[in-house]
């Protein structure tokens, strides 16, 4: 399956800066979409592809920092590169705490921005991959029956078949059958693989 083409969103209320940034990013062969305001970006349809956001902090109405919070609350994970004319420390600390990918001051050197964009896209690609894998695993795990899930929990916790049988009040033979189903449904190649998948699922749902 081929990875969809990554896209860079540029949001700045100053047309000349917007056009300059767009041209700069396009020159390295990346797809760019520009917006004059945060609202415009929020209502736009976003493609399902690795992406990052180049965002001006100081904008009328919805500021860059406001948009960051809105995206986070809306569960839209997208790396943000902030650009600010007056990069005061408290503001950048706040932005970084909320998970900003990078914080650059105006005027931005072209190479710095391109580096930041590449890094942000790579990071988004990894995150998307992780999310995709986790979704697949979750799908498989969810196909298990409640009984099988119980068995899975105890297997992953490192209990022996005999112990599991005692704890769940069933015969060792039944445990073995459930266990075989679990391995089959989750496509686990080994016990170690099963444990890894289970851990991954937990860590992604924690994020």
């Amino acid at each position: 399956m081929k990875e969809p083409e990554p896209v860079v969103f540029v949001i700045d209320d100053d047309r000349m800066i917007r056009d300059g940034l767009q041209s700069l990013i396009r020159s390295v062969g990346l797809r760019v979409e520009t917006f004059a305001s945060a609202q415009e970006f929020l209502v736009a349809k976003r493609p399902d592809a690795p992406a990052c956001l180049v965002l001006d902090v100081r904008m009328p109405e919805l500021s860059g920092l406001d948009l960051q919070l809105k995206l986070r609350d809306g569960g839209i994970p997208i790396p943000i590169i902030f650009i600010t004319g007056h990069g005061d420390i408290p503001m950048s600390v706040r932005a970084m705490k909320e998970g900003a990918h990078e914080f650059l001051t105006k005027p931005v050197r072209g190479q710095d921005l391109l580096d930041a964009v590449q890094k942000a896209l790579a990071s988004d690609r990894t995150l998307r991959q992780e999310r995709k894998e986790a979704n697949e695993i979750r799908g498989r795990f969810e196909s298990l029956t409640p009984r099988e899930k119980e068995v899975l929990e105890l297997v992953v916790a490192g209990l022996l078949n005999k112990q599991i049988a005692a704890q769940l009040g069933m015969s060792e033979l039944t445990v073995k059958t459930h266990r075989a189903h679990v391995m089959e449904k989750t496509q686990a190649e080994s016990l170690a693989h099963l444990v890894r998948m289970s851990e991954k699922l937990k860590s992604v749902s924690r994020k």
């Binding site: 056009d19 041209s23 105006k106």
Partner: peptide
Amino acid sequence: LAAVVANADA
């Protein structure tokens, strides 16, 4: 100035 730098770099 930021516009100048961005466009010149582009």
